[in-house]
Simulated scan of single mutants.
Amino acid sequence: MLSRRTLLSSLAGAAAAGRPKVYLFNIPAQPLRAALIAYAAVVGTQILYDARTAQGRRSHAVVGLFSAETALRLLISGTDLTILASGGDSVLVPVSDLRNRAGEAGGGTTLVLDTLYVDVPPGSEQRRDYADYGQRVRAQLLHAITSDPRTAKRIYTLRLGITIAANGTVGIARLTRAEGTAGVIDALQRVIRDIVLDRPPAGMPQPIYLTIIGV
Rank of each mutant, 00 (worst) to 15 (best):
A68I: 02
S59M: 07
S67A: 03
S67N: 00
P28Y: 08
A16Y: 00
V95S: 01
S10V: 06
D97R: 03
D89M: 13
Q46E: 15
P20G: 00
T45Y: 11
G87V: 14
E125P: 06
A16T: 00
I27K: 05
E125A: 11
Q126V: 09
R58S: 15
D114I: 01
L65S: 03
Y23H: 12
L8Y: 08
S90T: 07
F66Y: 15
P20D: 01
A34H: 13
Y117H: 14
A85Y: 11
R58K: 12
A68G: 03
G108R: 06
S59R: 05
L111Y: 00
G88Y: 13
V93H: 05
Y39N: 00
G18H: 02
T70N: 05
H60Q: 15
Q126W: 12
I47W: 13
A16W: 06
E104C: 03
L116Q: 01
L8A: 12
G108L: 03
Q30N: 07
G106R: 04
P31L: 08
L113C: 01
V43M: 03
T110V: 13
V93K: 04
Y117S: 12
N100A: 11
F66N: 02
P20F: 04
P20A: 00
R127D: 13
T53Y: 06
Y117I: 08
Q126L: 14
A68L: 02
S96C: 00
Q30C: 09
V43P: 01
S86G: 12
D50P: 07
P28D: 08
I47N: 09
P94L: 06
R33I: 10
G13A: 12
I83P: 10
E69R: 06
G108N: 04
P121D: 11
L111R: 09
A14D: 09
L11N: 01
E69Y: 02
P20M: 01
